[in-house]
Every structure is written in structure tokens, then in C-alpha cells.
Design a protein around this nucleic acid. Sequence first.
DNA 1: TATGAATGAGGTTTCATTCAT
DNA 2: TATGAATGAAACCTCATTCAT
Lengths: 214, 214, 214, 214
Amino acid sequence: MAGADAPPGRSKPASNRASRAAERRAAIVEAAFDEFVARGFAATRLDDIASRAGVAKGTIYLHFKDKESMFEELVRTAIVPLVAQIAAPPSPLVSVRHALEGFARTFIREVATTRRGDIIRLIVAEGPRFPAIADFYYREVISRGLAAMRALIELGIRRGEIRQTGLGRFPQIVVAPAIVAVIWKSLFEKHSPLDADEMLRVHLDLIFGERSTP
Amino acid sequence: MAGADAPPGRSKPASNRASRAAERRAAIVEAAFDEFVARGFAATRLDDIASRAGVAKGTIYLHFKDKESMFEELVRTAIVPLVAQIAAPPSPLVSVRHALEGFARTFIREVATTRRGDIIRLIVAEGPRFPAIADFYYREVISRGLAAMRALIELGIRRGEIRQTGLGRFPQIVVAPAIVAVIWKSLFEKHSPLDADEMLRVHLDLIFGERSTP
Amino acid sequence: MAGADAPPGRSKPASNRASRAAERRAAIVEAAFDEFVARGFAATRLDDIASRAGVAKGTIYLHFKDKESMFEELVRTAIVPLVAQIAAPPSPLVSVRHALEGFARTFIREVATTRRGDIIRLIVAEGPRFPAIADFYYREVISRGLAAMRALIELGIRRGEIRQTGLGRFPQIVVAPAIVAVIWKSLFEKHSPLDADEMLRVHLDLIFGERSTP
Amino acid sequence: MAGADAPPGRSKPASNRASRAAERRAAIVEAAFDEFVARGFAATRLDDIASRAGVAKGTIYLHFKDKESMFEELVRTAIVPLVAQIAAPPSPLVSVRHALEGFARTFIREVATTRRGDIIRLIVAEGPRFPAIADFYYREVISRGLAAMRALIELGIRRGEIRQTGLGRFPQIVVAPAIVAVIWKSLFEKHSPLDADEMLRVHLDLIFGERSTP
DNA sequence: TATGAATGAGGTTTCATTCAT
DNA sequence: TATGAATGAAACCTCATTCAT
């Protein structure tokens, strides 16, 4: 991930014990994340995580209590950046459409086309078996994200940008195509590539009542 | 177990050998489906499937080659009803809106509120590890369903019911809230119940340009 | 143990499924007992039990929940025969000395010189870490055995055979040399063989006030 | 941990390097002894010993070759005080009964009611797996102790204090109740408290032919 | 001398699969 | 066809031991 290529200038960056440990931990997190995303919780082997991270199996247990709590902590950690983006202020200065376009662009760039998209799929997949994770995800991402989205929608309605007043009650509708885009990318992209950018634009056209000009 | 050695003659309708086998197979399929949906592929134990189906573990192997092919066949089988409904003719007699409302109602009734909804989540979860399933699902459900949806949308556009012409290129947009509803039901329903019926209605209002009257 | 050499006459004794299972279970119990006695709980490997019993490792888990409950059940089972002997009636017809001599002989023959002696050492060794076992042993063996011994001692006192009236309050004193004999056999026999038979006789002489004639 | 980097000069009495090492070693021995007594050899973790001793795990290996030799050395060390007391001269000045009463008192005070009692149980438990320890224990404690006891008994016989001449051949009989008391304390004390003091007194009454007066 | 992160062999336990009945 | 006891590979996890600092 990011951070793997430290700024050049030092040959052995941070070689004291504390940061060596931090590096190892980061490597484990990195590897575990990849494996969990690729195989799901149950099918992931700690052996694979260890060898991918370049550490011994036992080393994992210096950083995590067991496979389950490693998974939970990992997913939680990975969710945090999503939260940060969502918590961005709705920027009432520009038009609501403009704000939503910004959202869409950021989402495409930072989520749909990166491994962060996979985490959404992972939560959908493992959520029912890890209620703690589903709860956390709901609390930190879903409820906040939808609240922000609702505020934006209602602003749009007040300003007359959005005519469909029912959207305020179902911000999920505004987000739905983005979710579908993420799922599509991981499952069907090879069968039929999806121009997520364009799809979200069409969706916004639908919401803001403009006619698309193909 | 019970009834296995019932006195011959007529214990149940169609109790000859061939159909007895068919019954058992159906029980296994049923049980396996429940377990796979509840736990995912890797975490499901054949032991649990067997006892839920009321057969011995070995019996499963009389009907399926192994766990993996059982899973694949199962999901394939479970998808068929979805296909049937989707392949229903777009019914050009009524309005397009009316047709889509019918779709939505059927979806809510037959998918979102039943176990068939979980199969969508299951495919999202296991798709990457079972490309054969993802392929099959794309071929049988996604591509056909989207094609039908696209035809309907274009009909709506030609008839002037739908003004947003871009939707023809992205039928996913029309389906997205239904997908989100299914996911929501399995993950977040307990945190915040979703009125899927109403949400889909608002979504149709958005598409067909009517103002919702709260 | 006993039962390994079934009565001849049939080449494959008890070859139906149920008794095959019973045989295997017996083999596991046998092997596990040997291993636990030889190494103690923690140092015993299920691998060794399995191969000594001639079964696969997994087979053990068809009969026992886990290592710990196997150990507890095993020891409990092994204790039962001790109980049976102890529950023998105090036989008031003969002299108390005679009764105690019978006890001593039986103890030497059936406990001190057999593997049942090792179980006493095993309980001493593992008791503190398996309170359930110590409790069971106290309840089934110790308390009953001491009660019976006390009754016998008091009978001896009433009959004038035993002059030391304090023994009624401490039946442990009467049993102590037998316990020591068992421990001695497993730890120090090779350094200095102990004639347990004779020791117990001397002990009885001490109790019944007779002078030993070497 | 705390105090590891104390300001040099004088943190504790005798804080030069050599004695600091000796203190650490003593702490390890102390901690190890507690752990081994509480859990037995195999179930004891070096981690626990280290943290109980307040040293790092690696430090243990500066003082002991490995777990096994640490255990052997430890038990040996712990036995030494027992030896000292046992080797005390039989004091022919007072009556033999008086000498044995002194023994009993000392045993109760210094062994049965302290951790040194547990070491007897530990040796009984681990002896078969550590022949070296059983050998050492036999050589240093058992054989010496019994020799001293035998000498005392024979003195008693010669002086006419003890009438049961067979005891000279089985000094174990005289010691047996003390052993049983120790075992009782660790296993059954909570079920039924034992007045070891009184029991040993009754036992001496038995040996010396006096009638107990309850 | 002291540390404690790292190792990896080895333990317990699970479970898909087989096969004699 | 149906069973379910048996298997054993493979998973997770522990912990004695090492070694760079």
C-alpha cells in the first residue's frame, strides 16, 4: 500500500526496534488485508498471510490476539479513511450538484478503483457473521454518510436544484449506483467493463433533472 | 432418519424408489442452501447440512461430487427462478411505469423479503472465489436482466415516459436501489428498518419525473 | 487390559458395527490411560495415544470432546473399581484384625502391584489442576473409604482389639502406609525394593498391639 | 522492569554487578518454583516465570540452560533445606518420643504448612518423568531421612520406649502419616480440614503405646 | 548482562471425504 | 441406496528457544 516506498535519502529507514516492529505490523496488516479481501475470512490461512508478509506464523500473534480479532481490527482500520472522506463538509458555497459531482469523483478515484472498494464487498460478505463489524460499519460510515447525504439533498431541495422531494427520505437512492459500481467492478468488470464515471454522471442528471446529451 | 424404514405400500405420495431419492436430494439442496446462505461457503460444514437435511453425511456424496460442486450447482439452481421472472416479456401493453412497478412489487415480494435475497449477497460474497458462479450469474441473470431492463427503458424513452435518455446506457441505475435494498435488509435492518417498497416507489417517481407527495 | 483376549471359538469376535466401535473406544481408553499415567496430562500427546491405540487422531474425537474431558472421564472410570472394593462390607463376623489383613492383601494384589496404583499417583499429581477429579475422588473413594475404615476401627475398639482409641478420629493413620507403599513402588522401587506385604503386617501389629516375631 | 535502570550509586544493599545478578537469579528461582508447584513441569510457561520474576524471558537463559535443567536444579535446590533438617542429629539426650515430637512439630511448621510441602507432591508427580530428580531425592532425602529415622527407632527399641520391634525394618511406617498429611492438605483440605498436628500426636501415641485421652 | 521481538516445531482440533456394512 | 465410523490432511495457536540490539 502507500508507505511501502518510503522517501529516499536513507538506506535503512527507521531501523530502531520500535519502528522495525511497526513495519512488521504494517506488513502483516497489508498482507492480511489482501488475503481477506481475496478469500474471505474463513478461507484465509494465517500461513499465507505470514508468508506474504514475510514473517513467521508466530509473529502474527505478537500483534493480534487471534484470527478473528485480527480480521475485525483490520476491517475497522480500513474503514477509517472512508469515514474521513465522508465527514468532509457539504460545502454549501457551491451548487449541490457540484458538491455531489465532487463526491462522485472522489468516490471513483479513492474507492471504486482501489482496494478500498473491496472492503465494501468484504463487509457485505462477512457482515452477517461478524455483527460487530456490521455494527461498526453502520455506525461509522453508513449512518454518518447517509446523514450528510440527506442534509445535502435537503439543501438541494430548498434551493430548488432537486425537485424530487422524496429523495430526502431515501438518501440510499442517491448512493445506490455507487455501491452497484463497486460490486460490478469486482464481479463483472471482465465480462463487461463499466464506465462508472459516466454512470454516476447520468445518475446525477437524473436527480437534477437535466437531459444528458450523448 | 424417521420414516426411513417405513412399511412399504404407501407412506407418502410418490414413495417409489426414484422419487424417494429425489426427495432426499431436495432435502439436501434445501438444507445446503440455508447453511451456505447463513455461513458462506468455507464456513459451512457438511455435517450441518446432513443433519439439517435429515440424512447421513455419506448420502450427500451420492448426490454431489464434493462440497465445491455442490455449492456451484446449488447456487445455479437457486438462480433459475430469478431468471424466469426476469425473462418475463416487457409487456408493451401497459405503461412502462406500470411494468416497472410490477417488477418492483415482484422483487420485493419474491426476492427482497425471502431467502432469495440472500443468494444475491452470497454471490457478491463468494463470486471472486468461484468465477464459474460469477460467470454463470452474469450470463443467466445480469446480462439478460439488464438487456430486458434496457429494452423497457428505451421503450419508455420512445413513448416519452422517460425523459432521461442516458438511462438506456446504464440500466444498472434503475436496478441499483433494489440491490441496495437487499443488502440493507441483511446487514442493517436491525439498526434502521428500511421501507423498501416506498423507496422503490420514490425511485420510480424520480425516473418518471413525477413529484412525490409525502 | 482385561478383555483384550476374548474367549476363543470365534475368529472375529463381535464384528458388528456397534461392538467394533466399542472395541476401538476401549483401545483408546487403554492407550490414553497408559500415556497419561506415564507422562501426566500436559505432556501426553494425542498423537501418541492414537498410534498406541492403533487409530487415527481424529477417531479420538468421535469418543471424547477434547483432551481435558477425556482425561477426566478416564480417571473417573478408572476410579470406579477402587470404589467397588472399598464398598465391600466390613464383615463383622471375623476379627477386625482379620478384616484389615484382608484389606491389605487385596490392596497389595489389586492396587499396589497393578496399574491401579499409578492412578493414585496420577490423582496426586494432577489433582490441583483438575479440581473436578480431586472432588470426585474425594467423594467416591476417600470419604467412603475412610468412613468404612473408621467404622471398622471403632468396632475394633469396642471389641477391645484396638486399644488406641484416637485412631477412630484419624483413620488416615491406618491407611497411610498403604499410600506410601504405592508411591514408593512408582518412585523408589528400583533404588530399594519395598516388601509392602510385610510392611503392612508390621503396621497391623502396631495397631493391634502384638509384638512382631522376626 | 521497574528499578532496572536505577541511578547508579546505591539503589539497594549490595547493588554491585555480581549481587545484582544473584538477586535476579534468586527472583527467577523463586518465581519458577511457584509456577512449577502450581502447574507442574509441562504446563508451566517460561513467560509466566519471567513476568512473575520481573525479568525478560531471555534473561532466564543467562542463568539456566533450558527449562528442563532449570526444573531439575530448582527442585534440587528446594530439597536442600529438607535435607538439613533431616540430617539433624537424633539427640540421644532426651527421650525418643520427645525427639519424634520435635520432628513432627518441625515438619508441620516448616513443611506441611508451607510451600515446601508442595515440593513433595511435585516430586511424586514428576518423578517418573525425571528419573534424575527421583534419584537425587532418594539419595539426598529419602535414604538419609529413613536412615536417621531407623537409628532413632532402634534407639527407642533399645531403651524400651518402643515395643514394636518391626518398626526398625520399616521406618516408612513412622513417616507415612506425615506424607499423607501433606498430600491431604493440597488435595482435600477444602473438603475436610485435617488437624495434622493432632493426627501425628495420635500416631506417636500408637507407636509409644500410650492411650490417647480425648 | 539484559532485553523482548521473532521464530518455527509441534500441539490440539476440525472436517471433507471414503468405504465397509 | 444409505449409513456413519474412520481417516488424515490441514488449520489455528502456543511456547521454548534464539539473537540482534
